[in-house]
Design a binder for these strands. Structure first.
Lengths: 223, 223
DNA sequence: TAGATTGTTAATCGATTAACAATC
DNA sequence: TAGATTGTTAATCGATTAACAATC
């Protein structure tokens, strides 16, 4: 037996954690940050779950995938749990990010304060329109798309945001992968395919509204 | 036995369809629209699944929750299936939408073409900053937040988009509910609570990046 | 007809819930 | 101590996959 106890593995297999658990982890983190802001020092699984609409058992089970963070009789200490979740998500260090496509949505994303607050720093923007390149948007330099690989490598950028129209999203994604990024958030309303080795998160704003429409029409709760 | 055969209920209980199935429905729809654009008339569950990274069995099972849309030996006729899915999602008619919070993100959402393409029409925007009210952004009139209830009722708006800062999101949501909306898409990075009767979809842009970071660090596929 | 492909059933797999001894 | 609350196990519930007769 290689681990100290036989309970939790010293190195839990994070890749095998259910996807649903990981997505709730981000919600726990966000809630904990608000709790600290409101002056709370500890929180029980019951109260944390209640705030998010989950059961206490689910909160405890989710967190237990990653280790033992709670204190029986007390609950979870907020700052401690925040640090732990940041470590698990990998957002305890700053991630340099590239954004491709400085249109309406791209500009909004460049100005979005929430990224910085969670450890993401958009260090370079790219566009193929020469009227936009060379300028600065929200403090971020807009480079020409042709310089993508060079700048991404120079700055050690690991993830890219795609905010171009649907018909160029695949090409942009391919260039980002060539340039060496390991993950992409795609805001274009189209399916893109990437090598297995590159992670992909798709965000389709119209689909979010569609999902809402369905639950309105069928009177069901979305969460 | 009230239904014709004993197979599919004449009125399938849509509220009991798994949430995951409904979210894939939107992806099928998006893919089918691209397929039609590319000149395809029919598509098999195998090919549709392949495009999206799902198995053929899953595609067939998902669609079978809602009825029989396929043709053995042929596959699914794209335009037919598109119409069926639109009917299921409720986006076969136009949904008038209200947007609250004309900041960076709000402006981008007002200019987002994808909403219109999927049946959503932002008919009114609201802000509490008097310098913004009375103007027009992307062809949409910006009203003062105080006029929310009046305009929402006048236009029969059923869903609202919240794109205000986190600290005013709950208040804005409450006012939207008072005004009679039945569903809300919340872009503010905070949990909001609504009556059971109102549907809620939350979109947190930083959380999407966090989820990507986790899968990059743990080299796992997000979809 | 032969080949392709559906809708559906049964088997498998995975996630959530309930319960409770252990702990503070 | 008594009360609160955890981490974990076992039981339940739900979703996905595999297989195949029915259909075009």
């Amino acid at each position: 037996m290689s681990d100290a106890k036989k309970n939790k593995p010293a190195t839990p297999d994070l890749a095998s954690v259910p996807k649903a658990v990981v997505s709730r982890l981000s919600l726990y983190l966000r809630e904990l940050q608000h709790l600290v802001f409101d002056g709370h020092e500890t929180i029980s699984s019951h109260r944390l779950g209640k705030l998010l609409g989950f059961s206490d058992a689910q909160v405890r089970k989710d967190l237990a995938y990653f280790g033992q963070f709670g204190h029986p009789g007390i609950g979870y200490r907020c700052p401690e749990l925040i640090a732990a979740i940041r470590g698990i998500l990998g957002t305890d260090a700053v991630w340099p990010v590239a954004l491709v496509g400085v249109g309406n949505l791209g500009r909004a994303l460049l100005g979005y304060k929430g990224f910085g607050a969670q450890g993401f720093q958009v260090q370079a923007a790219f566009d193929s329109d020469a009227r936009k390149t060379g300028s600065t948007v929200e403090g971020v330099t807009v480079y020409h798309f042709d310089d993508l690989a060079k700048v991404v490598r120079q700055r050690g950028i690991r993830v890219g945001i795609v905010s171009v129209p649907a018909d160029s999203a695949q090409t942009v994604a391919d260039r980002l992968v060539e340039a060496g990024v390991e993950g992409i958030v795609n805001f274009a309303p189209v399916t893109i395919s990437l090598p297995e080795s590159v992670s992909l998160v798709g965000v389709d704003l119209a689909i979010e509204l569609e999902q809402l429409a369905f639950s309105v029409v069928n009177r069901r709760q979305t969460r």
